[in-house]
């Protein structure tokens, strides 16, 4: 910073880069409960950059919100507290995807009781996910059913 020209340049450039208007800025905030969904493929890889569409309970055919999942397959939205019922979220990528129905009670949101909404969203996703052990058992019993059929018709 020996050269006064540099100092002068910095002074000016900083002044131009951040123009200051004579308006006061204000940020309001309010705490609300949002819904986070996470979309993954069967093998556990996240559905990154997939299209997510949210449908409100009062009109399940027109999209209420459109967006895109992030790299980890997550998508967050804040449902309208006025509307209670099932919020449908559809995630789709290359023809693959899923549709989840998230039940939300109006008073649950009104009381901003996050636990209630958290639980309901959990139960909505829990229906479709089995543990690997359960899956294995189901697969084995399914296969055994087919083999049993084969053996039945194979007997002479």
């Amino acid at each position: 910073m020996k050269d006064p020209r540099i100092l002068l340049f910095l002074l000016f450039s900083s002044g131009f880069a951040q123009p200051v208007y004579a308006h006061g800025a204000r940020i309001d905030y309010q705490q609300t409960s949002a819904i986070v969904i996470r979309a993954t493929y069967d093998d556990g890889t996240p559905m990154a950059k997939a299209q997510a569409v949210v449908y409100a309970p009062d009109d399940p055919s027109t999209p209420w919100l459109k967006g895109m999942t992030d790299e980890s397959g997550k998508f967050t939205f804040v449902p309208d507290a006025e509307l209670s019922g099932n919020w449908d979220v559809k995630v789709r990528q290359a023809g693959h995807g899923d549709l989840v129905s998230i039940p939300l009670e109006q008073d649950a949101i009104a009381e901003s009781s996050t636990t209630a909404t958290m639980n309901s969203s959990m139960s909505a996703t829990d229906i479709v996910s089995y543990s690997p052990g359960q899956k294995l058992l189901m697969a084995i019993s399914g296969v055994w059913g087919f083999i049993g059929t084969a053996l039945f018709f194979y007997r002479k």
Partner: peptide, 22 residues
Amino acid sequence: PQSSIPKSALFTAVFFIASLIH
């Protein structure tokens, strides 16, 4: 026709399980 049923049932099992293996 019945003689092909055991084979069909076995390969149905293979088809059923194949989509679970990533």
